[in-house]
Design a protein around this nucleic acid. Structure first.
Lengths: 261, 261
DNA sequence: CGTGCTGTTGAGGACGATCAATGACGGTGG
DNA sequence: CCACCGTCATTGATCGTCCTCAACAGCACG
């Protein structure tokens, strides 16, 4: 866990800066008003909550390193993952923007994580003075809404194979956007099941099918995609909803073929 | 279709004004910069698209009267409804905020509708000058994201009865927020099926069950909820995600009881 | 009085959940 | 070094929910 011991220098904010650039904040003059407000906090170890349900806070939280998930716990104790979060992502914009945010929502660390915070007061002042900053965060929310919307469509009617494949595609694309190059997706089948709305058992069987199709690596339990093109085909994945112009070219080729049908 | 012939007077904007108030724009001074930009357009008849897929426009669209749906059409032609829209709702904020909005998204009229438009240029200028306006629209997007998120959770694992009940609860709450008092929900079982991710046949059987439970009216095919309390119980509906403080009291009572379990 | 849309009913079958048990692996403490 | 434990992955068997197909009924419309 290097992140836990790393001093709070500028380098820790790398992913956050990249995220803000993707949101349309180009030059340093636009970035600084927000970056200057970030206080780097200590890390959170895997399994802990970054933001507990039924808690409130006076500051915004930004994920700096690691993978987290936005989730809600149901009456029976089961965990429903709404979305995964990567380095650079905002954890809890909803708590700031809404006046009565859903108190049941929580953010959990799926790997060891480190986070930064921005005090609400500072943030509000910056937003008032910088319309472009305001637009960028609005856009971030819009992007999250897009992700929810797309997952909504895929959760409702698609069979398990497509659901899981689509979920993996989304993660690959977002990892690309966050400049994560590791070939292995460090999630468990349990995590995927909670996000895909499937039982762990069935996710496992789906994985075996994906391995047979040559999409996933055969060895070990690590999740490693070895054939993106096939995965995209299986998932019928169209990345346009992610609003990532820079990444489109990597995927678009396959899409054209798939859409023609 | 009174809306189609009604002259473009201020009264048509009533629902829109109510919506903006709910979003935190209190006094006329904050409302006027946006209201002044709205151009009232002619109506759309049921079944037509308010916004076609793979089209683009230079203005924002606001639903003034009627019920619409944000939807996407799949390869097989089936329609997936992401959310319903009521008078006062923005139809296509995503097209304005994102630089590469998903082109497959469309808005269809589920009843006869009338809409207004706001030119992007005018809107951008207003947003730059009025941070509060910016926040209000951001909040609107956040609210939509909340709705998607909650639907995501309910679509994935809940049985049909709960899904349909929850969907109906959401519609009742949002109709309340839009000051719609008609007891009948003017949607077809087909609409509900496309939104719930169920087959029409199964929605029909679910309706019969809801009628047996005394939740829905027995007579005719109109969808009329006659027992909200029971509906909320069946749906395990918790309205807090809708961020509507004014409406909470109507529902909260039942929730407390349900949560105690 | 047809035509089209919506709602209703029945039968058969597929997909995925659940339950239960076993394996594989890493970490911990003796 | 090994025994133990917890977490995650895997397998088999059974069962229930919901889909699909197909047909028909009711109603509104021209």
């Amino acid at each position: 866990m290097a992140a836990l011991t790393k001093p709070p220098d500028a380098g820790v904010l790398g992913a956050f800066i990249a995220k803000l650039r993707n949101l349309g904040l180009d030059d340093a003059k636009e970035l600084q008003p927000l970056l200057g407000l970030v206080k780097v906090k200590r890390g959170i170890i895997r399994g802990e909550d970054i933001l507990s349900p039924y808690s409130s806070s006076k500051h915004l939280t930004v994920l700096l390193t690691g993978i987290a998930c936005l989730y809600k716990r149901l009456e029976d104790g089961s965990r429903q993952i709404c979305t995964f979060q990567y380095s650079g992502d905002f954890c809890d914009l909803h708590r700031h923007v809404l006046r009565n945010p859903d108190p049941g929502l929580a953010v959990g660390a799926l790997s060891d994580c480190s986070v930064g915070t921005i005090c609400y007061k500072d943030l509000d002042r910056a937003l008032e003075q910088h319309p472009k900053l305001s637009l960028a965060l609005w856009r971030s929310t819009m992007l999250e809404a897009s992700i929810f919307r797309e997952r909504l469509l895929h959760l409702s009617r698609r069979p398990a194979l497509e659901r899981v494949a689509h979920l993996l595609c989304e993660q690959l694309a977002r990892r690309d956007a966050a400049d994560i190059s590791d070939a292995i997706i460090p999630l468990t089948q349990i995590d995927l099941a909670d996000a895909a709305g499937l039982s762990v058992v069935h996710v496992n069987r789906t994985f075996q099918e994906l391995r047979k199709l040559g999409v996933l690596s055969e060895n070990g339990r690590a999740i490693e995609v070895v054939n993106r093109k096939e995965l995209v085909d299986v998932a019928k994945f169209d990345p346009r909803y992610l609003d990532m112009p820079k990444l489109l070219f990597q995927w678009q080729v396959h899409i054209e073929g798939a859409v023609v049908d």
